[in-house]
């Protein structure tokens, strides 16, 4: 019974309410670190972990919190989780940690996380909050890796380069599609272009689907 509802919640988080493409939350890390697939994946995993656990903790403590000071408490919870994630990254993926730099600690200020704590976790039971956090984090991760993939392909002509930062082993060049790319895609303007293209593509798909649906059902 509830499982179906959870699955539907995750599907909604991935597409209809996607934090990156629809809610446009957490744009600062989204634009800043998506220069390559591996950077996007690294930050996406970190955000996913923080969002899932923070939603669970906020939901578990929601009855003890003073309503007036709930947001600072959310931030404290999120900050302690981010500190854990940061130490884990430093310990296990030092190179990726250096590549992502300040944006790992800055997950604290990712408004997508505070928004889920406030909008969902503080009013819902623990399990559905964890599911919601996971779904939203996954939706954010997918946007990060998609934009990272686009920018890496256009910007340096490779796909999945430097995956050793995350999985260890020998340095890898990934799939080399071209020898050189358009530098602008790696630079900040490329992030805005890539995000705009991704949002436009999503809207176009939605519109096409709704047109098809209307034709099939014969509704106006």
């Amino acid at each position: 019974m509830t499982e179906g509802r959870h699955l539907q919640g995750i599907a909604t988080a991935l597409w209809r309410d996607n934090p990156g493409l629809v809610q446009l939350l957490g744009l600062c890390p989204l634009l800043a670190v998506t220069g390559s697939f591996v950077n996007g994946l690294g930050l996406g995993i970190a955000t996913l972990a923080v969002l899932t656990v923070s939603n669970g903790l906020v939901s578990a403590t929601r009855r003890f919190l003073q309503k007036e000071i709930r947001i600072p408490i959310f931030v404290l919870i999120i900050a302690s989780l981010v500190t854990c994630v940061e130490l884990l990254f430093e310990a296990f993926f030092p190179a990726l940690d250096r590549a992502l730099g300040i944006f790992i600690p800055l997950i604290v200020t990712n408004c997508a996380i505070v928004a889920r704590a406030e909008v969902f976790a503080s009013r819902n039971p623990v399990v559905s909050s964890i599911v919601d956090g996971f779904g939203m984090g996954l939706g954010f991760l997918l946007v990060l890796v998609t934009i990272g993939l686009m920018r890496e392909l256009v910007g340096q002509g490779t796909v999945f380069a430097d995956m050793h930062l995350l999985f260890g082993g020998e340095p890898v060049n990934g799939l080399v599609v071209a020898d050189a790319g358009w530098l602008i895609a790696i630079l900040p303007p490329g992030a805005f272009f890539a995000l705009a293209v991704a949002i436009a593509a999503k809207n176009a798909m939605d519109r096409r689907r709704s047109v098809r649906l209307r034709e099939r059902t014969g509704l106006r």
Partner: peptide
Amino acid sequence: VVVLVAFP
């Protein structure tokens, strides 16, 4: 500007 930034 796009080509100036992309292909200096």
